[in-house]
Design a protein around this nucleic acid. Structure first.
Length: 460
RNA sequence: UCCCCAGUAGCUCAGUUGGCAGAGCAGAUGGCUGUUAACCAUCGGGUCCGCGGUUCGAGUCCGUGCUGGGGAGCCA
C-alpha cells in the first residue's frame, strides 16, 4: 500500500477506510485506554492526530514512542470526535520505524533561533522552519513562473569566474594549488600553473554573463548561488546566498523599475494566496504585522524618488542622524530605514545616484554627475534590489573604466558587446533570502537558508 | 575590521548586598475514558563557557581567552 501525504488527507471530503501515513512524531498524549499521537510528514504545517487503542497489537511498544520518532500508521480516516481538527486516523497498525532516544534535541515547545542554528540539520523538523522552507520553495517556483510568463529565458551563469567583475565585495579564491607547496615565479605564486591557468574565484554576480545573453535572447534572468567573502556580522549578510538577476535588452531605467515593482508585488500576492497556512504561522508567532505589511507591499505603488530628493527629505526631516548626508555620500542604513519605515511607510525606489559611489557599468546620465542606478528599499529589510541601466556607449564605458583604474584587457569580451550591435539595456539583482525575510517576517537571514555560511561557521 | 550584549540542568530561564545551585519543560516510574505544548504524583539530572586573580568565601567582583548574538562598514 502506498502512503498518503497528510496535506492530502486534511483536505479529504469524506472518510477513508484504509490509509497509510508515514512521518515523524511531534508529541504523544497517553490515557489509560488509548494514546493520541501527532504525526507530521512535512507536506504541510498541520499534524495528523492518530488515535491508538490499548488493544492494538504492540501497544506496549507504542506507549514508548517519543517525540522525533519515525512511524508508519495504517488505519481509517475518520471525523474527529474531539474539537481542534476535522479528521483523525484511527490506527489499526502502528509500525515503529525508528525510536528517537531521550536526547533528541527538539522538544514540543519553543526553542530559540540561536539554539536551532546549532542543530541546523534538525531544525527543518520544527513548525517554523518547515514553513520557512516550504515558502522558500514556493517562492522559487513563482519566480521562474513569473519570468516564463513574460517570455524571459533562464540562463545558467558560471559559478567559477576568471574576472573580478564589478568589485562587488571580497572574493573566494578557487584553486587546485597545493597551499603547502605552491609553484612560484620570482617569489610570487605562479597562477599560470593553477587549474585554469589564471586566478579564479567564486562568482559575486551573474550580471556580466546575463548582459551577454540579454543582448542575444532579449529578456533573460539568472537565479543561482553567489559568494561574498566579506567578514560581515549582521542579520542581513551571509557568505553564500542566492540571487535573481533579470537583464533586459531595449530597456531603460524606468522599464527596469517597472519590472522590479511588478515582480515584488506579484510574488507577494502569490505567497499571500498560495501559502496561507504557513504565512499565518509567521503572522502569529514571528511578526504580528506581517499580513498588513504584505498587503501593503502587494497593493501600494512604490514611491519613486531621485537620490537628490531623498537627500532633501532627510535634511528636512529634522531627525538627528549619526552620519551626515551630503551629495556624493551613499545613503546609510539609518537613512534608508527612515525613508522606507518612517517617512513613506512603504517600499520605495531611489534612483540616479552620484557616479562616484556606483560601479563602472552603470549608465552615465546627461548631467555627468549621476548614473542610472536604482535601489528598491523595503520596510524591515532595507535594500532588497540593486540595479541600473547599463552603459551601452563604448567610449563612455571605457572612460569610466580608465577613471576607476580598471584593467580593460580583462574585460575585452564585455567591451565587445558594446562594439557589436550595442543597445540600451537594464537589469537588477534581487537578494532571494532578503525576499524570503520580507515574506515571512523572519529577522535573521541565517534562518531562511538551509545551511547558512557565515564567517567561522560551516559546520553543516 | 570596529563597537555593544550574553554564556547557569538536555531545552527556556531565575539566582537579591559576594554566604548551602533553583523553577518550568524534556527524561524515567506510576495514575487518569477524547487529549490538543494534555493533566496529576514521585524520582534522577550541574566543569555555573575556559584560564588566572581579589576574598575567610566567587554563579555573582576584576583580567584574559573562546563561543554565540546585535549594531556599523561592505552589500543582495
Amino acid at each position: 500500500m502506498k502512503r498518503t501525504k497528510i496535506i492530502k488527507l486534511i483536505k479529504s471530503e469524506r472518510p477513508i477506510d484504509e490509509v497509510l501515513i508515514k512521518g515523524w512524531v511531534r508529541t504523544k498524549r497517553d490515557s489509560k485506554d488509548f494514546s493520541f499521537i501527532e504525526v507530521n510528514d512535512g507536506s504541510c504545517l498541520k499534524n495528523m492526530q492518530i488515535i491508538v487503542d490499548n488493544t492494538t497489537d504492540n501497544y506496549q511498544d507504542i506507549i514508548r514512542i517519543s517525540t522525533g520518532s519515525a512511524v508508519a500508521i495504517r488505519g481509517k480516516l475518520e471525523a474527529s470526535k474531539g474539537p481542534g481538527q476535522k479528521w483523525e486516523v484511527v490506527a489499526e497498525r502502528v509500525e515503529i520505524l525508528n525510536i528517537a532516544p531521550e536526547n533528541y534535541p527538539l522538544q514540543k515547545k519553543r526553542h530559540t533561533d540561536e539554539f536551532l542554528r546549532n542543530i541546523a540539520h534538525l531544525r527543518p523538523r520544527t513548525n517554523k522552519y518547515g514553513a520557512a522552507f516550504r515558502i522558500r520553495s514556493e517562492l522559487s517556483y513563482a519566480i521562474h513562473n513569473f519570468f516564463r510568463d513574460k517570455g524571459f529565458r533562464y540562463i545558467h551563469s558560471p559559478i567559477i569566474t576568471g574576472s573580478d567583475c564589478e568589485g562587488a565585495g571580497e572574493l573566494f579564491r578557487v584553486t587546485t594549488i597545493d597551499p603547502d607547496d605552491p609553484p612560484r615565479k620570482e617569489g610570487k605564486i605562479d597562477y599560470s600553473r593553477d587549474f585554469f591557468g589564471k586566478e579564479a574565484n567564486l562568482t559575486v554576480s551573474g550580471q556580466l554573463s546575463a548582459e551577454m545573453f540579454a543582448l542575444a535572447l532579449g529578456d533573460v534572468y539568472t537565479f543561482g548561488p553567489t559568494f561574498r567573502a566579506e567578514n560581515s556580522h549582521t542579520r542581513r549578510h551571509v557568505a553564500e546566498f542566492w540571487m535573481v538577476e533579470p537583464e533586459m535588452a531595449f530597456c531603460d531605467l524606468e522599464g527596469n523599475m517597472d519590472l522590479a515593482e511588478e515582480m515584488i508585488k506579484h510574488l507577494t500576492s502569490f505567497i499571500l494566496e498560495e501559502c496561507k497556512e504557513d504565512i499565518e504561522l509567521f503572522a502569529k508567532f514571528v511578526d504580528k504585522t506581517l499580513i498588513k505589511t504584505l498587503n501593503n507591499v502587494a497593493t501600494s505603488d512604490f514611491k519613486r524618488l531621485t537620490y537628490a530628493s531623498a537627500l532633501d527629505i532627510l535634511k528636512k526631516s529634522g531627525k538627528k542622524f549619526k552620519y551626515d548626508i551630503d551629495f556624493g555620500k551613499d545613503l546609510q542604513t539609518e537613512h534608508e530605514r527612515y525613508l522606507t519605515e518612517d517617512h513613506f511607510k512603504k517600499p520605495l525606489i531611489v534612483f540616479n545616484y552620484p557616479k562616484e559611489i556606483k560601479p563602472f557599468y552603470m549608465r552615465l546620465n546627461d548631467d555627468n554627475q549621476t548614473v542610472a542606478a536604482m535601489d528598491v528599499l523595503v520596510p524591515g529589510i532595507g535594500e532588497i534590489i540593486g540595479g541600473s541601466q547599463r552603459e551601452e556607449r563604448l567610449e563612455v564605458l571605457e572612460n569610466r573604466m580608465d577613471e576607476m583604474g580598471m584593467p580593460k584587457e580583462n574585460y575585452w569580451w564585455y567591451l565587445d558587446s558594446r562594439r557589436f550591435g550595442s543597445v540600451e539595456h537594464s537589469g537588477f539583482g534581487l537578494g532571494f533570502e532578503r525576499l524570503i525575510m520580507l515574506m515571512t517576517g523572519i529577522r535573521n537571514i541565517r534562518d531562511v537558508i538551509p545551511f547558512p555560511r557565515t564567517p567561522t561557521a560551516i559546520e553543516f
